[in-house]
Design a protein around this nucleic acid. Structure first.
Lengths: 291, 291
DNA sequence: CGGCAAATCTGGTATATACCAAGGAAACCG
DNA sequence: CGGTTTCCTTGGTATATACCAGATTTGCCG
């Protein structure tokens, strides 16, 4: 290994240049890079794909290498500084490409650990089951729910009306994280009507709420009003999910009714944008199962 | 405003900082740099949110100003360079904040024209109606559909199975853009079974396909299989929508059946992530209308 | 006044550089 | 051997600067 001079970035990079270190893991990311392709003309920008910006070409190239290069879900990409060298550019440009790949859902990052290939999305049919544990298990993953906070409080203004409550009415509030294979996918808050589930706070809330409702309170979700839109993670949610602030996300809100047509609870969920695929089938149920 | 000297960025920036900037070469000397930074503060940077990165504080501040400052949907923000001056930072940092606000859906950009406040999302209940024109109109907007391309071709491999077709079977393919108030929201491709809608290509395809089906072919969507997930715009779609490559988006795919249970068509739609809010109500229809 | 070209403004892309803090491995120590 | 300290790697954040091309405005000319 080369000696380092001090800890700034420059020496670090230099060090890689001398060491071929064939290594791997991403060795897929080949070396050539455009330096040579562009050599003839002063600039790196040119040649290549008709006037496309460099970061887009890098993005395409990385995507191709991930697809064809045998990187599997969860594998780590080469470090940014290494990619800089391979594509002969700066971290700013590399990161532009990486961030766009993240935005497309192909890769994700773990804070200061690196960039990884995103695992397959969880397929979710919120009209059929909301049982997170069941869904993850059925799709071959290991589910986990972590209770962050539980309490009884006055109903938040934003949901007072939809829950049919008046100011100062009390509700249970749960804050939980959902994991699949130890990757945090979702942060959710459940606002529950106490009269539907007395003593809820004394139960084990690290499992399925749906199951708890069914087994202990004889409640089953019969109808729901579902709303959602793409947005990005608020700071505090990003922290909880171990993601970077501003990561694209899906904000999902759901008002649930039981088999008697009574409101049970209201859910607010922030899902990583790259973690789910939503399915909704409408129309005659019979027809679907037959088909 | 101050006078400019010439058109590169440097003079512009220099003009704001009166410091002598003892040349840099950043190396060792660097006495001044991000000046004042923490110094006495007196700046917006201050006290404020404990240790939050600057771009997040700027993001919050911009969001606040948009909310409280009376900027309405469609209004333009100050230019990046002006924001640099106001927040005493560089374009890189300002853009980090702007991009995150874009990601949250609060603002959007028009290529080289500026940053604007995003108009309200279109509320969409894909299980009730897929009639874009109707939806936009009902929500007070002016809809427009632009046919980009139409043709008859062999069925694309990806949808062959779901459409119940065999290789080399023919389908109609439409490529269209959807606008609300002249803002492009959605790019969609419709893959239609010719036997359901003969002579479709001879019709006016700049309107509602749903209407056309109903009036001319006596077809009504009775069931659909809907899939979607957040991703980002592929380059060619970004170009068509007048958006930047990599903009967060919602990819929506839908398999439609008519009142006889026969497949009619398959839709692939890319929506701007900031353009829609999806609603799905499930359960007893009666109950909903009563409620 | 209307049309066109030049000046200017805007965001888009890119380089080079630096320092920081958290993650993690290696070295060290008891 | 196990716990702790040191140090390197990694991404996160930020500065300073530049040039480009499209969009807009200005201003001149006929």
């Amino acid at each position: 290994m080369q000696q380092k001079i001090h800890q700034t970035d420059k020496p670090t990079i230099r060090q890689y240049q001398k060491i071929p270190r064939a290594d791997c893991l991403c060795g897929i990311i080949l070396v050539y890079t455009k330096r040579h392709t562009a050599m003839t003309d002063s600039l790196h920008l040119l040649a290549d794909s008709a006037g496309k910006p460099q970061y887009l070409r890098i993005k395409d190239e990385l995507a191709r290498q991930i697809r064809e290069g045998g990187l599997a879900a969860g594998d780590r990409l080469a470090s940014e500084r290494l990619l800089c060298e391979r594509f002969d550019t700066t971290r700013v440009t590399i990161r532009e490409a990486l961030v766009q790949l993240e935005s497309s859902g192909l890769i994700y990052r773990e804070e200061r650990r690196g960039w990884f290939v995103t695992p397959p999305r969880l397929r979710l049919n919120p009209t059929v089951t909301t049982n997170f544990h069941r869904i993850v298990s059925e799709q071959g993953g290991v589910p986990r729910t972590q209770l962050l906070e539980k309490g009884r409080q006055t109903v938040p203004a934003g949901v007072m009306d939809v829950l049919g409550l008046k100011a100062f009415d009390q509700v249970y509030l749960l804050k939980r994280l959902r994991f699949a294979n130890e990757r945090a996918l979702c942060y959710c808050e459940n606002i529950v009507l106490p009269e539907r589930a007395p003593d809820l706070l004394d139960q084990d809330l690290n499992g399925s709420l749906t199951d708890l409702y069914a087994t202990r309170y004889d409640l089953r979700y019969a109808r729901m009003r579902l709303r959602f839109h793409p947005t990005s993670l608020p700071d505090h949610v990003a922290n909880l999910l171990g993601a970077t602030a501003g990561l694209p996300a899906l904000l999902l809100q759901r008002l649930n009714y039981d088999q008697h047509g009574r409101v049970v609870d209201y859910d607010i969920e922030y899902w990583r944008h790259d973690s789910l695929e939503i399915e909704v089938d409408t129309g005659d149920e019979e027809a679907w199962t037959k088909g």
